[in-house]
Design a protein around this nucleic acid. Structure first.
Lengths: 219, 219
DNA sequence: GCTGGGCTATTTGTCGACAGAATGAGTCCT
DNA sequence: AGGACTCATTCTGTCGACAAATAGCCCAGC
């Protein structure tokens, strides 16, 4: 599932460790990352640690203040909305490109994910969105676009933020059933290789997710 | 014009220096960046240099191979096309958001840029696209979207690549007149606060730019 | 009691050095 | 003559240390 291959270097290893810790909320938003402390904690020197921090910075997981250290990004509602606008644009385009480039095997894989999701919903009472199967589905669509730079931008730069938000907000599964149906529709459009329809469906899907978040956080 | 404020640290200074050198082609695509050489050349140590390289990596200006150093990104046609697909999605969305959020002063500024462009075209015989005024225009639209994350993604991560491509390919001004008219149409749509139209115009504008590149590089 | 200044302690920014890995040259064997 | 092996050089990855800057704290003065 994880994308980044292990590079057998302390720098990338500590990047993954910190990334997971931040995404899962083990390091709380707003926390200041102290270099000496982290270096001691993980028994490494500050060199690789600083490189890891720069990479987290490019994932927007931490915010850097010159001579002020870095703080774990706090996701406020306006920022989450900003992210969803970007997702709408990028994943919409990804869906369109996927409709153009997806293989029959790719379609099968998506159908398989839908099956998994259905079984999961039946057993755990509708918690579709909370399970990773939702993210897996989006990943698979993005991968099918074939656009390497788009894949990188979404999966390596944006999705960690989205994951972090999910851990942080623990989305209610109220939209599960609708989201599942929207995924079904998307697979149909991809199967027919209908670029415009696939883009429309994906965009609407994400717009609804955003509206759901806005509604949920107003209360 | 430049976005990143000086941070008074060697790391960020060398980042800007290298970024400009790469974008302008002073360091040729495919070149391997040797850390000891660069460190000597700029009279700094390898610490700040490595941080700068990590940042260039997040701008996709260099490609990193573990234990193999970094090489300046070589922009081949498929990658340029990938970038333009992303631009189409992101700048289209930026135009839509700009239509929603732009102020009257923002519209005036865009009109002013159009005036400048017209004068420039009259004197230098139609070289609209080659001048920075084209990039300025797109920057201004993006800024008007008000979406900070979108602004960062486009201006700090993607546009350096686009600039690099421009220096590298030296685009012919054949599309100048059309591009100018498309910009005019966009300003009209923004002035009317028509989100859907603004998005459509921007997307078409970038699709045409991409098609122009594909056509040009086929010959 | 509250504010301002100076001192201390931690932290960031930067440097030089060492070890293991990769690259390339030169040589030896077939 | 061609290929493989060995050795040397260079480079990356990592570390520990020093200096400037920041932040926190204590004390004095109003």
């Amino acid at each position: 599932m994880a994308i980044g291959a292990t590079e057998n270097t302390l720098g990338s290893h500590i990047t993954e460790t910190l990334r997971n810790a931040i995404v899962c909320g083990e390091i709380k938003p707003g926390t200041k990352l102290s270099e000496p402390k982290l270096a001691k904690e993980y028994s490494i020197s500050r060199g690789p640690l600083r490189e890891a921090i720069r990479r987290l910075e490019s994932m927007k997981l931490v915010k850097y203040v010159p001579r002020g250290g870095v703080r774990v990004t706090t996701l406020e509602l306006p920022q989450v909305i900003e992210i969803y606008h970007i997702r709408e644009a990028l994943e919409g385009k990804a869906a369109a490109l996927a409709a153009r480039n997806i293989t029959d095997e790719g379609v099968d894989k998506l159908k398989h994910l839908l099956d998994l999701a259905q079984k999961h919903m039946a057993t755990s009472g509708g918690a579709y969105l909370q399970a990773d199967v939702d993210i897996d589905f989006h990943y698979q669509v993005i991968q099918s676009s074939g656009n390497q730079m788009l894949i990188h931008t979404l999966c390596e730069e944006l999705y960690y933020l989205i994951r972090m938000y999910r851990y942080q907000a623990a989305l209610q599964p109220s939209r599960s059933h609708n989201a599942f149906k929207e995924h079904q529709h998307l697979v149909l459009a991809l199967e027919q290789r209908d670029e415009e329809l696939a883009e429309l469906i994906m965009r609407k899907h994400i717009v609804r997710a955003r509206e759901n978040i806005e509604k949920q956080l107003k209360s």
